[in-house]
Simulated scan of single mutants.
Amino acid sequence: MTALGFLYPGHSAEDDYPRIEQLIGSDIRLTVVHTDMGEDAHSVDGLLEMGSAHRLEAGVEELRLSGAEAVVWACTSGSFVYGVQGAHEQVRGLARAAGLPASSTSFAFTHAARELGARRVAIGATYPDDVAALFAGFLKETGTEVAAVRGSGAVTAAEAAGWDYGEVLALAREADHPDADAILLPDTALHTASHLTALEKELAKPVLTANQVTVWEALRLTGRRVNAPALGTLFTREPIVQV
């Protein structure tokens, strides 16, 4: 049994996690602890507060008691908004507080893109354009080229959580670029766990989504490798990249 822990802001698409656990179909247990997100706003100030140390550390004890072997801050915007150096500091603080290996969804995207050999990516973000641009900058600084960025202007996680498959597919199509090796959908508030194979079939290339890469990152931290084709190309690749 491998126990993985996730700090998830508020309530939006957290039901992706039991769905992913089911699709993995192995001795993997996913525990989600909700953090207080403060204001639900895709704004720089709101996201900086959402990812603040005191909000993350408040959920750490519950994860420790769950027996988690690693912890991931399951929020893309609440990590990349700090920039690469700030996001590293955020993860180091989380690791110290938890006494466990730690990461965040932003770093999960960079590691997952590297695992797939995706040198250039297209970003389909639910966020406003200024926040989407910060994610593109984060990826570039961590070594992934960005061929295109599409922001959608959703101002809250609650709004993104209400999107159906058709809206998610439309975003991915609008974001796609001929030079992109993969398409990234970075919002953990977006329901995608049930749509990965359909998205990849429609777009004919790998699709990386926030909750998918977050779970993959936790597995990477514990050294586990699982083959779960229902979770997309990322979950059929071996070995897991070591960084």
Rank of each mutant, 00 (worst) to 15 (best):
L196A: 07
V146R: 09
H177M: 06
A133C: 04
G137A: 10
D187M: 01
A189D: 01
V168P: 00
L190A: 10
V149Q: 03
A175S: 13
A160M: 07
G151F: 07
D129W: 06
E145F: 08
D181V: 08
T156G: 10
P186V: 10
A189M: 07
A133H: 10
A154S: 10
E145W: 09
V155T: 13
V131I: 15
A189V: 08
L196T: 02
K140R: 15
D181M: 04
R150Q: 14
L190G: 07
A180E: 02
H195A: 13
G143W: 05
A133E: 12
A170Q: 07
A193H: 01
A147T: 10
E141D: 15
E141N: 12
L184H: 05
D129P: 09
L185M: 09
G143E: 09
E174T: 09
R150M: 13
G166K: 08
G166W: 03
A157C: 15
A125T: 08
V146M: 08
A147F: 06
A125E: 00
D181N: 10
A132R: 01
G162Q: 11
G151Y: 09
P128W: 09
L184N: 05
V149N: 04
I183V: 15
L171R: 11
Y165H: 12
A132N: 05
F135K: 01
D164L: 11
A132I: 02
H195D: 13
H177N: 09
D176P: 02
E141F: 07
L184D: 03
R173V: 14
T197G: 07
V131E: 01
V155C: 05
E167H: 10
G137E: 05
H195V: 03
T188C: 14
I183S: 06
V168T: 12
A161E: 04
R150L: 15
T188G: 05
E174N: 11
H195I: 00
Y127K: 06
S194T: 11
L171C: 10
F138Q: 04
Y127H: 08
H191P: 00
A170F: 00
G151S: 12
D181R: 08
T144W: 05
A160C: 10
P128C: 08
Y165F: 15
A133Q: 12
G166V: 04
Y165M: 08
V168Q: 01
T126C: 11
H195N: 08
T192V: 13
R150V: 14
E167F: 04
T156P: 01
G166T: 12
D179Q: 15
A132P: 00
L196N: 02
A132C: 06
S152M: 09
L171H: 03
L184I: 14
D164A: 14
